[in-house]
Structures are given as structure tokens and as C-alpha cells.
Amino acid sequence: MFRIEAEVDNRRRDLLRSRLRDSNTEASPVLRALRGTPAEHELPLHLWALDETGTLAGGLVGHTWTTWLHITYLWVAEPHRDEGLGSRLLTRAEHIARTERACRGARLETWDFQAPRFYRRHGYRTVCAIPDYPPGLTEYTLIKPLG
């Protein structure tokens, strides 16, 4: 007999994540070869674009893991859009991932109202589309080989 609880519990969340990572590492020859947990090989990659006053004009937040760059956030302030800043941030992140971290691919998620066309112009291709996530929107997963 089990009791199921629905409550936010960060201690249990961390324990569950640790146990899942241990199970995944044990089951995967690729992860076992890394010698350590996946989190130990995850390196943050943050880029910040500041205007002449030092105000945040845009940024990219992601991380690299094994041979992949994962872009979590890419944002440019409205007054600086259509100036190429987003392209510069993306290109710089890909360059760092490829040349300094030996990444061979990049991945990200975006919604249909955000920037799928922007990423496609930069060589990304859609590998997954989830319609109605959330209702009325489509979420896309895109990838790009980094060469």
C-alpha cells in the first residue's frame, strides 16, 4: 500500500532527480563513459548585451552538456530589435560552444509566436512540434549541427 502526496517538496525533488540521474547513468554506456553525473558536465553559457548606458539590451542563457549547446532563453529589448543583436548573440553562443566546448549540435525550444523563423534563418530545423501547448500555441524543438 502506498500513500500518494501532492505537495511541493524541494528536498524530495532533489532526491528524485539524483536517483533518476544515477539510474540513467547506469543504464547508458554514453553517460557511464562521462564518469560522473550529467550535471557535473553541464556548463552554463550566458551572454549579455548592454547598451551605452549599461542597460540590458538583450541576452542569451543556455548551457552546454556533452557535445550539445542548449539555448534556454534568447531575448532582445524592443528598441534593439531588427538591429542584428539576436543574431550576434546566437552566433557568439554557437561559436563558444563549437570552439571552446567541442559541441557538435545546438538545440532549443520556441513557440510559434516567438522566433521559429529567426532560428530557421540561422540553420536550425524543426524536429518536433507540439500543437496546443499551451492551448492555442505550438511549441517547436529545433536543432542545428555546429560542424
Score class of each variant (00 low, 15 high):
Gly84Cys: 13
Asp51Arg: 09
Gln114Met: 08
Leu142Met: 15
Asp132Val: 10
Cys103Tyr: 00
Leu69Met: 02
Lys144Thr: 07
Arg125Glu: 14
Leu89Asn: 00
Phe113Asn: 01
Gln114Arg: 00
Thr91Val: 03
Leu85Gln: 01
Pro135Gly: 03
Ile71His: 03
Val61Asp: 03
Glu83Asn: 09
His41Asp: 15
Glu139Gln: 14
Ala97Asp: 07
Leu89His: 05
Ser87Gln: 05
Pro134Asn: 12
Gly62Val: 04
Pro44His: 05
Ile130Lys: 06
Tyr140Met: 08
Ala115Pro: 05
Pro145Asn: 06
Thr99Lys: 08
Thr138Gln: 13
Leu90His: 13
Pro135Ala: 13
Leu47Gly: 08
Glu100Asp: 12
Arg125Phe: 07
Glu100Lys: 01
Lys144Arg: 15
Thr72Pro: 04
Leu45Asn: 01
Arg92His: 07
Arg88Ser: 14
Glu83Ala: 13
Trp48Asp: 14
His41Glu: 14
Gly86Asp: 10
Gly58Lys: 13
Pro116Phe: 11
Leu56Lys: 12
Pro79Asn: 04
Ser87Asn: 02
Leu60Gly: 06
Thr110Glu: 11
Arg101Leu: 12
Ser87Pro: 04
Ile96Tyr: 05
Glu40His: 10
Thr66Leu: 15
Glu42Lys: 12
Thr67Phe: 11
Glu109His: 12
Ala93His: 00
Leu43Glu: 01
Leu69Asp: 00
Thr66Val: 05
Leu90Gly: 08
Gly62Ser: 00
Thr99Trp: 13
Phe118Asp: 05
Phe113Gln: 02
Thr55Pro: 05
Pro44Tyr: 04
Trp111Asn: 01
Gly59Thr: 06
Trp111Arg: 03
Glu83Ser: 15
Tyr140Leu: 14
Thr126Glu: 15
Cys128Gly: 15
Ala102Gln: 10
Thr91Glu: 01
Glu83Ile: 06
Leu137Gln: 09
Ile71Trp: 02
Trp48Gly: 02
Val61Met: 03
Gln114Asn: 04
Gly86Ile: 11
Pro44Met: 12
Glu139Gly: 04
Pro131Val: 02
Ala129Val: 09
Glu52Arg: 13
Glu42His: 11
Ile143Cys: 05
Arg120Gly: 11
His122Trp: 11
Lys144Cys: 10
Ala93Glu: 07
Gln114Trp: 03
Gly86Trp: 12
Phe113Ala: 08
Glu83Thr: 15
Leu137Thr: 06
Ile71Lys: 11
Thr126Gln: 04
Leu56Pro: 06
Ala97Val: 05
Pro131Asp: 06
Pro116Val: 07
Thr67Lys: 03
Pro145Leu: 05
Thr66Arg: 15
Glu40Gln: 13
Arg92Ala: 13
Asp82Gly: 08
Arg88Asn: 03
Arg121Glu: 15
Phe118Asn: 08
Gly54Cys: 09
Ala97Leu: 04
Glu109Lys: 10
Arg107Thr: 09
Arg125Ile: 01
Glu40Phe: 03
Leu89Gln: 01
Cys103Trp: 06
Leu74Gly: 04
Leu74Ser: 07
Leu85Lys: 13
Lys144Ala: 09
Pro44Ser: 14
Ala129Phe: 04
Tyr140Gly: 10
Arg92Gln: 11
Tyr133Pro: 00
Arg125Lys: 11
Trp68Asn: 09
Thr91Trp: 09
Glu100His: 03
